[in-house]
Computed example of a mutant assay.
Amino acid sequence: MHIPLSEAIDRYKREPGAHGNAYDWYRRSAQRGNGVSIHGHTIPAMKVGRQWMVEESDLDAALAAMSEARALLVRRTADYDQRILHPGTVRIEGGGYRVSDAFHFLWNDMDRARQRSDGCWICNRCWTVATEEHDGEECHRCRDWSPCGTACTLSRIRCRTCGASQAA
C-alpha cells in the first residue's frame, strides 16, 4: 500500500536515532533520484498526482533494519562497558573502536567533529591509555603538504601499566 512521503518521514523521525533532515530534503531527494534514504536504505518514491508516495512495506523494512542496527549498537556498547571486544572496527554509542592485537583504538565522534581528539590507544589487558612512540618517517603528504591524518609516524604502542607493547 502506498503512503504519502510526509507520513513516512514522520514515522521515521519518531524512531530513536533518526536523523533530523527537513521534509524538503527528502522531497528533493525523491525528485532527483526517485527515492529517499532512510537510515542508509533507499526507498523508491513515486509521484502520484501532486504528492510523493512510498510503499509502506519498503518503509517498514527500512525501519526494521534501523531498529536492528540500533539494537546491535546498544549490545556492542554494553559489551564494551563489560570489557568485551569484538574484532575489527566496531561502532558503539558516541563513537567506536578498532582492535589491533594487544590494543584497541577508541574514538569519540563529538571530539572528532570538534577536532579535539582523533582518539587514543587503550590496552586490551589492563584498559589503561597507552603511550605512542612516533619514530617513523613522515609520509610524502605530511612532508610536503598537510597532515595525512593517519598517524604515519606512529612506530610503537606501549602500556606503561602492564608492559604490553606492539609495533604499529
Rank of each mutant, 00 (worst) to 15 (best):
T128L: 07
H134Q: 12
W145P: 00
R50Y: 05
G20S: 14
D81I: 04
I38T: 03
A64K: 10
C152E: 06
V36K: 02
R14H: 15
G88E: 13
V36H: 05
E68W: 05
L106K: 13
R143P: 01
C152R: 07
H39A: 15
C139I: 05
R28E: 12
K13F: 12
T42Q: 12
E133V: 09
N108D: 15
Y23N: 01
R76T: 09
W145N: 14
E55H: 14
W145Y: 14
D10A: 14
S100T: 07
A71S: 12
H134W: 11
I43C: 06
T77Q: 06
M66L: 05
R76V: 02
M46Q: 15
D79F: 06
R14L: 15
M1T: 09
K47R: 15
E7T: 10
R156P: 00
V48M: 11
M46F: 11
G119P: 02
I9T: 01
W52I: 03
V74S: 09
H2V: 11
R91I: 13
Y80E: 03
T128C: 06
E137T: 09
N21A: 08
D79Y: 07
A62R: 01
N108K: 02
A151H: 13
W52Y: 10
V90P: 08
L154K: 07
C120V: 10
A130H: 01
V54E: 06
H2G: 05
G149Y: 11
A18Q: 06
C126V: 04
G17E: 08
W52T: 03
A164N: 08
M1R: 09
G94I: 10
G33E: 14
Y80R: 14
V99S: 03
R156K: 06
G163V: 02
A78G: 06
R160H: 07
G136S: 06
I43Y: 05
G35R: 15
R143W: 10
Q51S: 12
D135Y: 09
V129E: 15
H140I: 10
T42H: 10
